[in-house]
Design a protein around this nucleic acid. Sequence first.
DNA 1: GCCTTAAAGCAAATTATTTGCGTTAAGATC
DNA 2: GATCTTAACGCAAATAATTTGCTTTAAGGC
Lengths: 188, 188
Amino acid sequence: MAVKERIRVGGRSARIQSAVHEAVTRLGAATPRDELTVPQIAAAAGVTPSTIYRRWGDLSALFADVAVQRLRPVCDPEDTGATASDLRAFVEQFMEEMSSPACRELMRDVFSQPGGAHTAQCRCFTTDHLETIAERAKARGETPFDIDEVIDHVIAPIIYHILYGGRKLTLDYCHALLERIRSQPHKN
Amino acid sequence: MAVKERIRVGGRSARIQSAVHEAVTRLGAATPRDELTVPQIAAAAGVTPSTIYRRWGDLSALFADVAVQRLRPVCDPEDTGATASDLRAFVEQFMEEMSSPACRELMRDVFSQPGGAHTAQCRCFTTDHLETIAERAKARGETPFDIDEVIDHVIAPIIYHILYGGRKLTLDYCHALLERIRSQPHKN
DNA sequence: GCCTTAAAGCAAATTATTTGCGTTAAGATC
DNA sequence: GATCTTAACGCAAATAATTTGCTTTAAGGC
């Protein structure tokens, strides 16, 4: 009696998943989002449409799945030798990348899903990096920083302006947000 | 020659718009979002489906339109007699309302639209209220506050945690965010 | 290597979306 | 306030997407 019916993860399933993901990415780059259809993606991936419907449910779920994959960082934040510059480099790159039209689209795909599972993954991409930087600080014996502070007062404003618009995201703005953290008393 | 071909705004058009909006709101309350269909909404509104397709394009655009309407504040922020308590009351209510499951859904609907027109409207709902509170402060001769500061360091963190999850939004947290503003030097 | 069954393919049935055309009624003009 | 123009609606036929029942394939466990 197998209580835990595990999902299949290798071979054909994996091949199809990556074929479909690639098809979405490729077609998505060439076509406006709202003109993509499931049958079109299925054809490009060499798969039958019902496979996509049964596995992902609908287009928005498939897009969200692809978006999380593509937002997943491919490497650790750069080690610049000091905490302040590690943080600065990370936040500058974060702002730069996330405010690109492509990333805005991916974020929209992520937010469109109910349940919060996808957004939680994206949150972890950020917190994991900050934890890496914080651990380096600790290992070097530098004064630590509060990750929640950075999330609330550096990351959150950046995300807010990306989502709602109305403010240009400049390097100066980015540095001002970081400066504000440094001048604030720590909680721990 | 009429250079500006104005869109019709009264009579039948307006009637149909509100009938469809009401149908979406009513059905949306009783049915999970992803089970609603255009034909179903059309029937509930006493309208033909093609009317909805021609006017809104697709479900997500209709949902976004309804969402912006429903997120529009119905009245000015409460006047409590002092700036600090005005701000506190506004932010507490903002956090309370926006973190409800219903508002999360509406926000998802708003973000799902490309172009940023919908999100810009929602941003204005917030900034307008903050401007109202700031003007009251000025009229009373109280020390003014920086609206951008409140957006960046009070509103943005709240929105971030609503969207990404992972932190409980308590009154204490809300007050801590506000306290941080008060202890910060102004720009103007 | 064999067995069980999750996941894929195929095709028919259903449902949603688009489209062409006739009709209604907003809003402009006189 | 009667008339005119045309945006917006309704209807129905044509097209496209989605669901579903059944068959086939191949992961993963033994």
